[in-house]
């Protein structure tokens, strides 16, 4: 509580929103278990106490679908960001450390990836194996690692060339020590900021692909896909579209507001 009280208001709000979304992602599928179970008798049923968001055009529980989609989006985005950050920052440090040929090759690869728009990479991967979970993950992670690589490389080069690293080397310390005491404290705030923005980008990309129909395929519950499916019924039941939109908006707002304290010197 004391820690929360110290935070600026926007970060407190961000944590609150994120807690709500996480609650939905974790507890939701447990309360409303099956997002795919159809009951055509309850076509577009209105909200009730048991079904707070009612049922959709196939009589499926909207609450169950939203909860499942949230879990999927958050999980997949976290996995992508984790892989991209790990791969990108490791290669970035390696490139800054080794210099020479290693640096030239890695930079060439990174620039090559950067030349293609991120969403295009994901689209290419999705087109290769339509709607697969694994391809989406690979595509998103491969589109994102370059950012981490470039930032980590640039910052690491500065740190590695600084007198304090030279002093540590003279004192006889090895690479492990330099990473732990010199690089990590310098890189971690930046990586956390990038990861929170990266989560937002990944979630948005995922739902964009779902919306245009090349992401996950029905009957999977996915935020973008849910919006597309519900659009024809917008005039009768706008809640079908608004529910995934609201979840998406709140998640993105929380992640953007969450950015860790600016790196101050």
């Amino acid at each position: 509580m004391t820690y929360l009280a110290l935070l600026p208001w926007h970060r407190r709000l961000a944590w609150l929103l994120l807690a709500l979304v996480l609650l939905l992602a974790i507890a939701g599928p447990w309360l409303w278990p099956d997002p795919a179970r159809q009951d055509l008798m309850q076509f577009l049923a209105s909200p009730s106490l048991a079904e707070p968001l009612g049922r959709d055009q196939l009589g499926r529980s909207v609450m169950a679908r939203v909860a499942s989609a949230t879990r999927l989006s958050l999980g997949l985005a976290a996995l992508c960001v984790l892989s991209a950050a790990l791969l990108g920052s490791l290669l970035g440090v390696l490139s800054a450390w080794r210099g020479g040929l290693t640096d030239t090759v890695l930079r060439g690869v990174a620039d090559g990836v950067l030349a293609l728009p991120g969403l295009l990479i994901v689209l290419i991967f999705s087109a290769m194996a339509k709607g697969g979970f694994l391809t989406l993950y690979l595509g998103l992670a491969l589109a994102q690692w370059v950012e981490y690589f470039r930032m980590t490389r640039a910052r690491s080069r500065l740190v590695l060339a600084s007198p304090h690293v030279e002093a540590s080397r003279l004192l006889g310390f090895g690479p492990g020590y330099i990473v732990r005491r010199h690089l990590w404290p310098e890189l971690s705030p930046m990586l956390l900021t990038m990861a929170s923005f990266g989560m937002a980008t990944a979630i948005l990309a995922l739902s964009t692909l779902g919306y245009v129909g090349v992401g996950l395929q029905p009957p999977a519950a996915e935020l973008g896909l849910m919006m597309t499916e519900a659009l024809p019924h917008y005039s009768e039941a706008p809640r079908l579209v608004l529910a995934p939109v609201a979840v998406l908006a709140l998640t993105l707002a929380a992640l953007v507001l969450l950015r860790p304290l600016e790196v101050t010197r």
Partner: peptide
């Protein structure tokens, strides 16, 4: 100041 790791 530059000879010590700044965050440690």
């Amino acid at each position: 100041v530059q000879a010590f790791a700044p965050h440690i």
